Amino acid sequence: MKMVYRIIKMVVLTAGAVISVYPLLFMLTTALQPSTLLFEYPPKLLPSQLTGANFAEAWTSQNFSIYMGNSVMVTAASFLLIFVLSSMLAFAYSRFRFAGKSLTFAMLMGALVIPGLTLVIPQFMLIRSLGLFDSYWGLITVYTASAIPFTTFLLKGFFDTITKEIDESVSIDCGGSFRLFLSVILPLSKPAFVPVTIFNALTIWEEFPWALTIINDPLKRTLPIALANFQGQYTTQWGIVFAGSLIALLPVILLFVFLQRYFIAGITAGAVKG
C-alpha cells in the first residue's frame, strides 16, 4: 500500500513539475529560435537551429536596458522604504500598548481586501496634487503604501513569536526600545524578511497598470512597459517578446534561488500568530 501511495505521489508531483516548467521551457526554446522557424508545423520542443539574436534585439530595442535600470532603482528604493516603515510599525504593534491599537491594526488589515485597481483614480489625484506625476517618486510612494499592510502583518506575526522575556533582559541591561528593535528583534527576524523580500520585489518588479498611468516620459518607464511595447498592433515578434520576458525574469529567479532555504521557514513562522 505504501508503494502504491509513493507511486501516485511521484506521478502527481512529476505532472505538477512538468506543467510548471513547460511554459518556461517553451519561452526559452521560442526565444532561441530564428523568426522563420517560430510557426513551423508540427511545432518542435527542441529547435533545430539556435540563435541569440532575439536576446540581443530585445536588450537593445525599445529602451529595454534603460527600463530595466529604472525597474531596479524603483524596486530597490521601494523595498528599502517598505522594510524600514513596516518593520517599525510591526514592532510597535507587537511590543507596545497604546490607545486605538486594535482599531488601527484592524483598519490596516482592512486595506488588504481592497483591490488595487479600484484605487488608481484616487491615487492618481493624490500623486498629481503632490507634484509627483511623471516621476519615480510617484511610483515609489504608491508601491510603498500598497505593500505596508501585508508586510506589517507578516512581520508582526513573526515578532509575536519572539519571547518577551528578551525585552526584560534588554531593559535590565539599560537598553531601550530602540536597542531592542535593532539589536535583538531584527537579527532574530531574518527568516521573516525573506518572504517579505520575495513577495514585495516580485510585485513591484512586474507591476504594470500604475506605471503605465503615472509615467509619461519614455525614459522613466519601467520594465513591464518595455515588454508591452514589443507587441505590435498587427504583428508581434514573439521570439523578441519571450527573450525580453526571460531577461526580466532572471533577477527574480536568482533572488528566489539565493533565498529559497529561508522562504518556507519564514512563511510558517510568520503565520503562527497574527
Rank of each mutant, 00 (worst) to 15 (best):
Leu32Tyr: 02
Ala90Arg: 00
Gly138Asn: 02
Arg95Glu: 08
Glu40Lys: 11
Val21Cys: 09
Thr36Pro: 05
Asn70Cys: 07
Arg97Cys: 09
Ile140Val: 11
Thr104Val: 05
Pro34Cys: 02
Met125Arg: 12
Phe79Tyr: 12
Arg95Phe: 06
Ser146His: 14
Pro149Ser: 02
Ala53Glu: 15
Ser146Ala: 15
Ile82Pro: 06
Arg95Val: 04
Leu103Thr: 13
Val18Pro: 05
Ala53Leu: 14
Val84Leu: 10
Gly100Tyr: 07
Pro42Thr: 03
Met107Gln: 11
Phe26Glu: 14
Thr144Lys: 04
Ala92Asp: 05
Phe79Ala: 06
Ala90Asp: 02
Ser86Val: 00
Leu112Asn: 10
Gln123Lys: 11
Pro23Tyr: 04
Gly100Met: 06
Phe79Val: 07
Ser78Ala: 10
Leu25Ala: 12
Phe79Ser: 03
Ser48Ile: 10
Leu132Tyr: 06
Leu139Pro: 07
Phe98Glu: 07
Ala147Ile: 08
Val72Trp: 10
Leu89Met: 15
Ser78Val: 06
Ser87Leu: 00
Ser71Glu: 07
Leu81Ile: 11
Ser20Ala: 15
Ala90Pro: 03
Ile82Cys: 00
Thr30Asn: 06
Ala58Asp: 01
Ala76Thr: 15
Ser65Trp: 11
Ser48Arg: 10
Ala99Glu: 15
Ala92Trp: 00
Thr118Lys: 03
Ala111Gln: 13
Thr60His: 12
Tyr143Val: 07
Ile66Gln: 14
Thr51Trp: 03
Ala106Ser: 11
Ala17Arg: 05
Asn70Glu: 09
Ser94Lys: 02
Leu46Asn: 04
Tyr41Gln: 15
Met88Asp: 04
Leu38Asn: 07
Met109Ser: 08
Phe124Leu: 12
Tyr41Arg: 11
Arg95Cys: 05
Leu85Val: 13
Gln62Cys: 12
Gly138Met: 08
Asn54Tyr: 01
Phe39Asp: 11
Gln123Thr: 12
Ala17Met: 06
Thr29Ser: 15
Thr141Ile: 13
Leu38Arg: 09
Tyr136Glu: 08
Arg95Trp: 08
Leu103Trp: 12
Met68Val: 09
Ile82Phe: 04
Pro42Cys: 00
Thr51Tyr: 08
Leu37Trp: 08
Ala53Met: 12
Leu89Ala: 14
Phe105Pro: 05
Ile148Gly: 04
Thr152Ser: 01
Phe150Gly: 08
Lys101Leu: 00
Gly52Arg: 09
Phe39Val: 08
Pro149Trp: 04
Ile82Ala: 00
Ile66Gly: 13
Thr51Arg: 02
Pro23Lys: 02
Pro34Asn: 09
Arg95Met: 03
Ala53Lys: 15
Tyr136Ala: 13
Asn54Pro: 06
Thr51Gln: 06
Ala99Asn: 13
Phe55Thr: 01
Ala15Pro: 01
Ala90Gln: 07
Pro34Asp: 10
Pro47Thr: 00
Val21Thr: 07
Met27Phe: 10
Leu130Glu: 03
Glu40Arg: 12
Leu32Arg: 01
Thr118Arg: 02
Thr36Cys: 07
Ser48Phe: 08
Leu126Val: 13
Ser86Gln: 00
